[in-house]
Each structure stands twice: as structure tokens, then as C-alpha cells.
Amino acid sequence: MILVLLLGGGGAGAAWFFMHGKADAEEHDEAPAKKKKAKKPAGPVIYEPVEPFTVNLQPGENGADQYLQVAFSLQLSDPETQEEVKKNMAKVRSRILLLLSSKHASEINTPEGKVQLAKDIITALKEPFEDRGSQQEIEDVLFTSFIIQ
């Protein structure tokens, strides 16, 4: 009699465990699956290196000349944008040169300053290259060298 009760209780406990344990596991598995579905499919990341720049920075408080040598790559959204950037590299370099030469060393020598500079470069390069063209989709600027002297 005790054996039957133990087996019945064990069976009921096992049934409860498998039913509730499986339901809880399914709930936990569904939550990450929903998050994954919300993300857009990621294509290959496209990087376009830009030749290094050496520019005079705006004079500081002491009036001494300072220079910036910087190299970076652009992270682009698609191959069409990459071709547009390559085709207009002279305009890309001109816009960046004008932007960099307008900066003071004190503005860009902190991590926050570098982040802001990357945002400024993105803004400058998103402007259409042609009068009636569309904006370029520049996703990020990734510095590979950054020297202030």
C-alpha cells in the first residue's frame, strides 16, 4: 500500500514538474525569440577606409600651432552608398578637411570630443553630393589613428 502511494505521489510530482517546467521553459524561450524577430536582418558590414589627414588645428590659448593626424574608416549602410562615397572621395575629403581644420585641440582631445567629432563627420558626409541627390547613409566613423601634436 505504501509502495502504491509513493509511486502515485512520485508520478503526480513528475507529471506536475514536466507540465509546469516545460510551460515555464517555453515562456522563457518565447521572450528572446520575439526580441530576435524585432531586429532587422543584418547584412555584411561595409567599411570604406579614408586616407589619413594631417591638418592645422585652430590655435589654442597659448597661440601655438597644433596639428591633427587622423585616419578612420566609414561604416556604410549598403554597397550603393559605398560606390557613391568612392565616386565622390574628393568631396568627402574636402568636407572633412574643412571640418577638422575648424577645431581646437581642446575640443577633440577627450573621448567625448572624439565622439562628437565622429558625429560631426557623419553630419557633414550625409549631405547630398549632388544638388538634387539623396543623403548618404553613413552609419559610423571608426577612428584608426588619432594624434594631436
Rank of each mutant, 00 (worst) to 15 (best):
M89P: 14
H28L: 13
M1K: 07
T144Q: 10
Q82I: 05
F146R: 07
I46A: 00
L117S: 08
H28K: 08
A71L: 03
T110I: 04
E112Q: 08
Y47W: 15
A38W: 05
E61Y: 11
E30Q: 12
A31D: 00
G10A: 11
P111N: 12
E107F: 01
K103H: 02
I121P: 13
L142W: 02
A25C: 15
V141P: 05
E48A: 11
K37I: 15
T81A: 12
L117V: 02
Q75A: 01
K114W: 06
E51D: 11
E48G: 10
Q58E: 11
L5Q: 08
G10D: 05
V141T: 01
S106M: 04
E127N: 02
T54H: 15
D140R: 03
L3V: 13
E127M: 10
L142N: 15
P52E: 06
S94V: 01
Q116K: 13
K119G: 03
L98K: 06
H28D: 15
F143G: 05
L98M: 11
V115S: 13
R132V: 15
E80T: 13
K114R: 03
P41N: 14
G21M: 03
E30K: 07
K114P: 02
Q58M: 10
V92P: 06
E139M: 06
K119D: 08
G63M: 00
D65E: 15
K36L: 12
K37L: 14
S134K: 08
P32N: 09
G63D: 02
A64N: 07
T54E: 09
G8R: 12
T123Q: 13
E84S: 10
K35L: 12
M89C: 00
I148D: 07
N56W: 12
E84R: 04
T81R: 05
L100Q: 02
Q66D: 00
G60W: 10
D65W: 08
P52R: 11
Q66V: 01
L100N: 14
L76M: 08
P44V: 08
A64F: 13
A12E: 07
E112A: 15
F17I: 02
K119E: 09
A90W: 14
M1C: 02
A15P: 07
A124W: 01
L100C: 07
E80V: 06
M19R: 04
K91N: 11
I121R: 00
S73K: 11
L125N: 01
E30Y: 10
K91D: 12
S145D: 10
V85N: 04
V141W: 05
I121N: 00
T54M: 10
G13S: 09
S106W: 00
S102I: 00
G9E: 09
V4D: 09
E84G: 13
L68N: 04
N56H: 07
P59G: 12
N109M: 14
I108A: 01
F143K: 05
I122Q: 01
M19F: 13
A23T: 09
Y67S: 04
W16R: 09
Q66K: 03
L6G: 14
N62Y: 03
P44I: 06
E61W: 06
P111H: 05
V92H: 00
I108H: 04
Q136R: 03
I2M: 05
L117Q: 11
L97W: 10
F17G: 05
L68T: 13
A15C: 12
P44M: 09
T123R: 06
A64L: 00
